[in-house]
């Protein structure tokens, strides 16, 4: 299995697409840094104006930790989009390139091939999230320094500088699990449709629609929320509450792991029974 995973990693990291997603992430973070460097004070003074009526706000408001926290909001759409473009391609590219016949006529079984791709997908997601974390944190801290972070959840919460890093890394770990689950869904659609673009569109469409439904709180959907993956993916925000509700987070972790498992099993069954006649 290790050699199969190595082969998949070679294919992945020889593809231009992989580096494009890393590059786009770096550009995204740079834009956030530049934007806040230019307009950050004005933006936060506007958001905190009701506090300014009663308090002097002393200290380094627009600091590297705050910017890193804001960068995490790319976890809503930008990061899932960039991830699934590559992860769906890991599976459907073989059909698109015609190399599926080449792959399946070698000595490895279908199950082994799929597992190797699945492991490669997980490793890519981990790599990607590390790039996100480092590109969000390092430049902004170097330019803006560190400080407390005002977070707009249930009103306003001030997260202490000393606890920020551990929250940040826990968020990244949780988000990695979330992105693996999301990529597993993309994997299932990629095998089903045998096409990267279709799989990406379907999976992103689902994420956007479900997130919107939750935002508008239509009565008929409110009881479905715990069953929706978008609800659980969004739980990374809980790491920035003053008292982190770990039971709720663990529930979401179990859900996301379960979702990954189910997507894998469904894909395994489909792939093993599939006729490759093209």
């Amino acid at each position: 299995m290790i050699r199969l995973v190595q082969i998949e990693l070679i294919k992945l990291f020889r593809s231009t697409r992989t580096y494009l997603t890393f590059g786009i992430t770096l550009v995204l973070m740079l834009i956030i840094d530049l934007g806040l460097y230019s307009d950050g004070d004005e933006l936060f003074n506007y958001l905190l104006q009701s506090i300014n009526d009663y308090f002097y706000l002393e200290g380094n408001l627009v600091n590297g930790y705050l910017i890193s926290y804001l960068a995490l909001n790319t976890l809503w759409v930008h990061i899932p989009t960039l991830i699934v473009i590559v992860t769906a391609h890991i599976f459907s590219s073989e059909f698109e390139q015609g190399t599926i016949r080449l792959l399946l006529t070698q000595s490895a079984s279908r199950g082994e091939c799929l597992m190797a791709k699945f492991i490669c997908m997980i490793l890519y997601v981990i790599c990607f999230m590390i790039v996100v974390a480092l590109s969000a944190l390092i430049p902004s801290v170097m330019i803006f320094g560190t400080g407390d972070v005002p977070v707009f959840i249930d009103g306003i919460q001030f997260i202490q500088e000393s606890s920020f890093l551990s929250r940040f890394w826990k968020t990244l770990m949780f988000s990695t699990i979330a992105m693996v689950a999301f990529s597993s869904l993309a994997m299932a659609f990629a095998i089903w449709f045998r096409n990267t673009l279709t799989a990406v569109l379907v999976v992103l469409g689902l994420l956007i629609v479900l997130t919107l439904l939750q935002t508008f709180v239509f009565g008929i959907f409110s009881s479905w929320q715990p069953f929706l993956f978008s609800y659980h993916i969004a739980k990374w925000q809980l790491f920035f509450m003053s008292d982190i509700p770990m039971p709720s987070i663990w529930n979401s972790v179990y859900y996301l792991i379960g979702m990954t498992f189910i997507c894998y099993v469904v894909t395994y069954i489909k792939f093993n029974k599939m006729n490759i006649s093209e």
Binding site: R14, T16, G98, R101
Partner: peptide
Amino acid sequence: KSITGFHIDSPSFYPFL
């Protein structure tokens, strides 16, 4: 597969390699 080398349909390889 265990005793055979196959070339099925049009030849396809990884174009970027």
